[in-house]
């Protein structure tokens, strides 16, 4: 097995911390604390981008790092914070169902990611394999969070942490997507966040809460009179 360089080790460490924060996000019942965890994850992804940029000679990664830090580490958490305040959710705690089981499921997802990636990059470096597995795990745990959390803001956090995982994969496995794609994705994420904000208000107006379990009028056979 070839020795990993220092920079690669740093990238792996940061990515592992991002994965750890995914677990925190999944189990954190307090909304504001979850938003903070998400912000830290954004900062870590930005740091990974910066280190990869330093390691290689891809200059546009510095720009990406700045963009990620601004968007995922500062702007989106700030928007979520403001929304939580305006919707009186600052002290909101969500009731989690079977937290231990969900965490176990997340652990299984991490193992699954490694299993999936194992044959894919057999010939490639250990580094690439690890980083793709970790980012896939972040994506899948984000997905799990969207399935299990019943609170609209928490679901959005899951969505955004999926985006973090995707960005991590793009940056560390392939040294960043072409700039036009990166800008497009960032634009889409920003617009999505603005729309999510609009929807929080529409949902709380229509069901008096942000618990999406109460969005249950549309079923397969019955149509409300």
């Amino acid at each position: 097995m070839n020795q990993l360089s220092l920079l690669q080790q740093i990238v792996l460490l940061l990515a592992a911390l991002a994965l750890f924060l995914s677990f925190v996000l999944l189990a954190q019942a307090r909304l504001v604390a979850a938003i903070h965890a998400f912000a830290w994850q954004g900062v870590l992804v930005a740091a990974v981008t910066l280190v990869v940029g330093l390691a290689g000679s891809t200059h546009h990664l510095y720009f990406s790092a700045g963009l990620t830090l601004a968007l995922k580490g500062l702007l989106i958490p700030w928007m979520l914070h403001r929304l939580a305040r305006r919707l009186n959710l600052s002290r909101h705690t969500e009731l989690l169902y079977h937290p231990a089981l969900v965490i176990m499921a997340a652990v299984l997802l991490v193992i699954f990611s490694y299993w999936l990636v194992e044959p894919m990059v057999e010939q490639a470096l250990v580094f690439t394999r690890n980083i793709i597995a970790v980012s896939l795990a972040v994506v899948l745990i984000g997905l799990l969070m969207m399935v299990f959390r019943r609170q609209a803001v928490a679901q959005v956090l899951g969505f955004m942490s999926m985006e973090n995982g995707l960005f991590l994969a793009a940056v560390s496995a392939t040294a960043g997507m072409p700039l036009v794609v990166e800008l497009g994705v960032a634009f889409d994420v920003l617009v999505a966040m603005v729309l999510f904000g609009v929807f929080f208000f529409q949902i709380s107006e229509s069901i008096d809460s942000l618990n999406v379990d109460r969005l249950n009028r549309l079923t397969e056979v019955d149509v409300s009179p």
Binding site: L143, F196, F199, Q202, S206, L215, R217, S224
Partner: peptide, 22 residues
Amino acid sequence: RTPEAVEAAWKYFILCGVGIAL
């Protein structure tokens, strides 16, 4: 802006968001 419409839109947003992320 009916409750049904908001629900449909949220479902659309979340499901397609997840799908497209994959």
